[in-house]
Computed example of a mutant assay.
Amino acid sequence: MKFKIDKFVLSIIVVVLFAYLFPQFGSKSSPIPLDKIGSIGVSLIFFFYGLKLSPEKTKSGLKNWKLHLLVQVCTFLVFPIIILCFHPLIHSEYDKTIWLAFLFLASLPSTVSSSVVMVSMAKGNIPAAIFNASISGLIGIVITPLWLGLFLNNTAASYDLGDIYIKLIVEVVVPVILGLLLHRYWGNLAQKYNSYLTLFDKSIILLIIYKSFASSFEENVFSGIDTFDFVIISVAVFSLFYLVYFLTGFLSSKLGFNVEDKITAQFCGTKKSLVHGTVFAKILFPNPSAMGIILLPIMLFHAFQIFIISFIATHAANRKEAQLSYVRNK
């Protein structure tokens, strides 16, 4: 079985390397207004997100409520609770920053496109995947800042939850609502050119990642992370994924889900969105130099989830095809 590295993951690696070699373009003195471009890009991302979100499909998707509830509970409750268990281990500012980066990862919504694609590949419940992936992004607009606000509001003098929510409303909520209102007029057009909109989304994400890591490299933020720490962070990310994946599978079995619903629960309930992570980090963390460390776990998680879920999806599809072939030949 052959695996190809995801082009977006490869692009992230190239952008981080470029930020390391040429951090000056992302510095405060840079003549290129990357912050303003990023802010406008974030608003457009969520405008297109609302434009593509069908109210009719969202309403019809509410029927399978047990599956939806499990996916959203795993996404927004199980993940953060696991990370909260490690809060007593914080002994320094460095530990606190790494822990906040993991809490940020844990509180993010699920992915949209990759969740649906992987569920489709594994022959899972596609309509439920579309519903959960779509609704997760909307829930995350409220839940993610709330989780971070519980700790940042009390620990960071520069963190003002009121200002954060105003910025969040202006850059995220208003564009989503505007997109939803215009769905009936431009929704079909957005679906038709979805591949171009996805390319635009990824381009803005790469720009924000460059800006974040350029600032971090310029201020030597990563000087405290050695090879051993990087390995520990990587292992923690992988362990977090597997723990929630198997826990979601266990709960799916206890709830009596069929194979298709179990696939959807495990695939959607364990995914975390790098798109939301990058744009939320830009809004939630006012210090651009700290964003490099904040984004590190979600970037590792993104690469890992694509690889392992692709493997699991391919295996599940082959197994189901073999079962159908056996039934036909019997």
Rank of each mutant, 00 (worst) to 15 (best):
I5C: 09
K7I: 14
F8E: 07
P23T: 08
S27Y: 04
P31H: 10
F46R: 03
L51N: 02
L53F: 13
T58C: 04
G61E: 10
W65I: 13
L67A: 03
L69Q: 00
L70H: 02
C74Y: 09
L77I: 15
P80T: 07
L84N: 02
H87Y: 15
H87D: 00
P88Y: 07
K96Q: 12
K96D: 03
L100P: 00
L105N: 03
A106Q: 03
L108P: 05
L108T: 09
V112A: 06
S114Y: 04
M118T: 14
M121A: 11
N125Q: 05
A128Y: 03
N132G: 03
A133M: 07
I135F: 11
P145V: 06
P145Y: 10
D160T: 09
L161P: 00
Y165Q: 03
G179Y: 03
L180N: 10
N194A: 10
F200K: 05
D201C: 12
L207K: 06
I208K: 06
I208T: 03
S223N: 09
I225N: 01
T227D: 07
D229H: 12
I233H: 04
F238Y: 06
Y242V: 11
F246S: 08
S252L: 11
K254H: 11
T264D: 05
F267V: 14
F267I: 15
G269Q: 04
G269M: 06
G269F: 09
G269P: 03
T270K: 05
K271R: 12
V275G: 09
G277E: 08
K282Q: 13
I283H: 07
L284M: 15
L284D: 01
F285H: 03
F285P: 05
F285G: 02
M291N: 13
I293Y: 04
L300N: 04
F301W: 00
F304P: 02
F304S: 08
I306G: 02
A316F: 14
Q323W: 09
S325Q: 13
